[in-house]
Amino acid sequence: MKPTRIALILLWLLLIGGGVGGSDHEAAVPYYRASGFNVPILEGWANQSGADFAQFALVEAQATIRTARVSAADGLAAAQSELSELLGLDIGQPVYSNKVNLADGTWQVLVFDIDDATTASVMSRRADSEHVVITFVERNPAARIVLLTTTQADDTLEDAAPEIATAVEAIAGITMNELSPAENITLPSGEWIVYASDIVTAMGMVFGNDSYMALREGEPGDFAALADAYNRTLLGFFITPDNSRYLALGLAAVFLILGTLVFSFGWRARSLRQGMELIEQLAREED
């Protein structure tokens, strides 16, 4: 066997042993990256994203999900600014406002009834000196969709039924008794529980200690797909951390150690030369 082949086999064994080389990881979710944040790309949705924002539209459902960083004084102003940019309208006060603590920070949850046909659900949180705003807008006059996130009242429960009950009563003015029995469905974003009546459909899922809910007044249509897409965006959203200072520190450590090694070679060679000069001097004196 040729030495080159033996060397290659040894190298391969080393890499396998050390845990390096090719990858057997599952394919990652394809993300759209803009202005330092990342959101999952929604398959089947039209990608209308730009350099500074991610925007996906489902034309037949007249729905848009948009994520952007906005300079604004607070979460509400950021949401209003973002909706104004998206819809080209002046945005009034929200019909619902709440705060929820998620793993990546405190989000403001807002719902706006823009006009008879348009409803917007917004999540907004501070990110450095700006705000990240995730917006869901539907412009279907035949339906009204509201998407909410709230902390579970009882985090031992594995479904969002209590939060759905509260939301349905607050938004549609009906009680859980008026809804059909719960139905469980599995969507890419998780396990959902669905309640329905003639006038409202409510869905909810639990992730961590938080309930993610979706309510629709009117015909269900693509409701489940819309709620799932919004939740995938919320749960899949993350900001790439800015840790370039640590990279600079690491590179400085590398240069310091290699530089010290090479410098010590030179320094020791210089000391040897000085020793040689001393021996020469001794030899001359001896002569």
């Binding site: 050390g18 390096v20 790439t240 951390p241 800015d242 640590y246 690491g250 590179l251 590398v254």
Partner: peptide, 20 residues
């Protein structure tokens, strides 16, 4: 750039080879 780890992931290109 690694979208989850950020720029610091680049140190891997020295960290692991330096062990070898």
């Amino acid at each position: 750039t690694d979208i989850e780890q950020g720029e610091i992931q680049r140190i891997f290109y020295i960290h692991m080879p330096s062990f070898f």
